[in-house]
Nucleic acid binder design. Structure first.
Lengths: 195, 195
DNA sequence: GAGTTTAATTAACATATGTTAATCTGATTT
DNA sequence: AAATCAGATTAACATATGTTAATTAAACTC
């Protein structure tokens, strides 16, 4: 049941069977159907979610109605509007399922108790978020310094599985360009590097 | 001496005088002259630095030789190449002083000892990096969804002090545009919203 | 299986930002 | 004071990406 989560945590801190068993009691299980929301902008995020299976996306909608995907949430990743979760402010992000998915949810006060009662989990979350921070910063660098084409090529290299799995307009949204531009870029590339 | 650091930490966790006193022993003090490097790309980051005074910048240099500023580090902020610091890999970022600055340094093994011996500091760093993560993510949203002009206006609103303090070409670099473009944008704006 | 929505492609044109190069200013150095 | 240098501005032109709109293809729905 929680095998993936255990492996995920044990990449950062060692746990005994008893410790892990007691940790799982803080989580609840949630299944989402494709297109179903995990969180909507304006609501307060009560949970963070560990993705056990499936795929979600975290995105905003700007004034002009365009969606901008901030992050995909695949197996072994977490999804959350961390600001809303931590501060209780209304969420500014939407999170929904791109395919049928299963999440393990950690409610806010449950996490607070877990952090108080289990120093290893405090450490786990510190390490987890450190690496997320590093990755997010790298994404800023890429966005600032690379052209759309370069970002697309890097995306393919970084998430080859996702490229198969999700529609291209979603990738375009993640890259910060229009689907038309991505289509044009792909055409360019296929001319230059024939399969 | 460490007043700013103490206030900074106590925003997240409460400390007794004794606790804080023992914490300070893990830090060393470093003064940097304007233009002096704190870290150069290719070297391993041995320290993270709390900025007690002055202003630094964290940036990369791309293949074409252009600098991209990822973050400014002003009073009460931390500066680091966290990836290098955590993994021991060569740094991909440069960090240097934009004006004479004073840092409090925390060496890697010193931090590990601090985290082991003081759970409050484990919690402090977890909370600190959570909020950095939130801010960094928001920056991605801004970069993806806003025009250069909008990003500039937001920058002015967010860091009014910095706008006075640092050259415009540095702001352009942070925004991901050329100094010429920023100059053009400012001209546009001054026509539209006369001072 | 017909009809309807969703995704991908293409093309013509529009616009924001980059590039190159020249000028100007003020600061710093000698 | 002269000389040098870094930063800011401007202009002409180049290019990447956006916009609008039409077409096709594929995936659901009834």
């Amino acid at each position: 049941m929680f095998q993936l989560l255990r492996t995920h945590i044990e990449k950062r801190v060692r746990l005994t069977d008893e410790e892990f068993e007691s940790i799982t009691r803080y989580f609840s299980v949630k299944k989402l159907r494709k297109r179903q929301f995990f969180l909507q902008e304006g609501n307060v995020a009560k949970h963070i979610g560990f993705v056990n299976s499936g795929c979600l996306r975290i995105y905003t909608i700007d004034q002009k109605g365009a969606e901008h995907i901030i992050q995909f949430g695949i197996e072994d990743w977490w999804v959350a509007d961390l600001n809303s979760y931590l501060t209780g402010q209304p969420a500014t992000y939407n999170i929904d399922a791109m395919e049928d998915s299963e999440l393990f949810l950690l409610e806010k006060t449950a996490r607070d108790k877990l952090l108080d009662s289990c120093p290893k989990m405090e450490r786990f979350f510190r390490i987890l978020i450190e690496s997320n921070y590093v990755a997010t910063r790298q994404r800023i660098v890429d966005t600032l310094s690379a052209s759309a084409e370069e970002r697309y090529l890097k995306f393919i290299r970084t998430y080859p599985k996702l490229v198969e799995q999700i529609p291209q307009n979603q990738i375009a949204s993640y890259l910060g360009i229009t689907p038309q531009s991505l289509s044009r870029i792909r055409k360019e590339l296929s001319g230059r590097q024939p399969a």
